[in-house]
């Protein structure tokens, strides 16, 4: 029929010898092969990009045209002023919403058995996680690009390009830190629906209890304290400062602190759960 597999001798007994280490080059190659896998998914199932492509469009139009007039009026301007206000907020929202997708996809991998195969292969287990995160970051960039196109169409004034790129960088950084939470959910919870439901429970209060869509001035005292340290407010405020001018420092500090804290806390948990899940 075809070529036979040559006999493979058993390796010599190496009792007590230290275990293999996976080098950086091999690690990058493994991650590359797994990134390719996730990109092939998108190629075969372009619908999986719908959320990244359509969400910025739908949410931007919804907020600008439904609430834009009213909130813009309270900002002392109108519809046009609200566009300037909400686009940096949308950038913040997008980073978290896209990050959430990583959990469900990860959960599915555990169900169809492919994760067992990966975990019995001589590859660094972090490669699987990093590949997943890389592809989600790519989706985030696609969503961001589309958001900026929509922003231009609804009249956002791009005045500070360096600021824009800095804001996008900050959003991507925060989004990748958020992914660790969703990865933990993805490894821990039984099925993809629970992962999605829990994801929404995490996201909703953070997104709406923030300065993403409207200024927090009119909120009650305790809620204002919450929003002041809510990373979504921090990211939205910092992005706003960077893109249209205004205070940056507080938002930047809050965002960076959250990003670092989440990564330091959640990444080890995610990696541990992933490694020991049986």
């Amino acid at each position: 029929m075809s070529t036979a597999i040559p006999t493979r001798d058993l390796p010599a007994i190496q009792q007590g010898e230290a275990d293999d280490r996976i080098g950086l080059r091999a690690g990058l190659r493994h991650t590359g092969a797994l990134v390719r896998r996730n990109l092939l998914w998108i190629k075969k199932d372009p619908e999986s990009m719908f959320d990244a492509v359509l969400m910025p469009v739908v949410f931007t139009l919804l907020f600008v045209y439904v609430f834009g007039g009213a909130i813009g009026h309270s900002l002392g301007g109108g519809h046009h002023q609200y566009v300037q206000y909400v686009i940096p907020g949308m950038l913040a929202m997008m980073s978290m919403t896209i990050a959430q997708g990583v959990g469900t996809g990860f959960n599915e991998d555990f169900h169809n058995g492919i994760m067992d195969r990966f975990r019995t292969m001589p590859i660094g287990r972090s490669s699987v996680l990093i590949a997943k995160i890389s592809v989600e970051l790519l989706r985030m960039l696609v969503a961001t690009t589309i958001l900026m196109i929509v922003a231009a169409l609804v009249g956002f004034e791009f005045t500070n390009w360096a600021g824009l790129f800095a804001a996008v960088g900050l959003a991507v950084l925060f989004g990748s830190a958020m992914m660790w939470i969703f990865l933990v959910l993805g490894v821990t919870l039984k099925n993809a629906q629970s992962v999605q439901a829990m994801g929404f429970l995490v996201m909703m209060p953070l997104q709406f209890g923030s300065s993403i869509f409207a200024p927090t001035r009119s909120m009650s005292g305790w809620l204002r304290t919450f929003t002041a340290y809510n990373p979504m407010s921090g990211l939205a405020d910092a992005a706003r400062g960077l893109m249209i001018g205004g205070p940056i420092a507080h938002g930047l500090v809050v965002t960076l602190a959250w990003s670092a804290g989440l990564t330091l806390l959640m990444a080890p948990i995610a990696i541990h759960r992933f490694t020991t899940k049986s």
Binding site: L10, P11, A12, I13, Q14, Q15, G16, E17, A18, D19, D20, R21, I22, R37, L40, W41, K44, D45, N112, G113, I114, D116, R117, T120, M121, P122
Partner: peptide, 28 residues
């Protein structure tokens, strides 16, 4: 010759597993 507990990575170079559920990527 590899210890399951102490040399898992080295062990993984020598084994192949076909589990109860076909461990292939159905989308590829």
């Amino acid at each position: 010759g590899c210890d399951v507990l102490r040399q898992p990575r080295q062990l993984r170079r020598t084994i192949g597993l076909t589990g109860q559920y076909a461990s292939v990527d159905e989308k590829l």
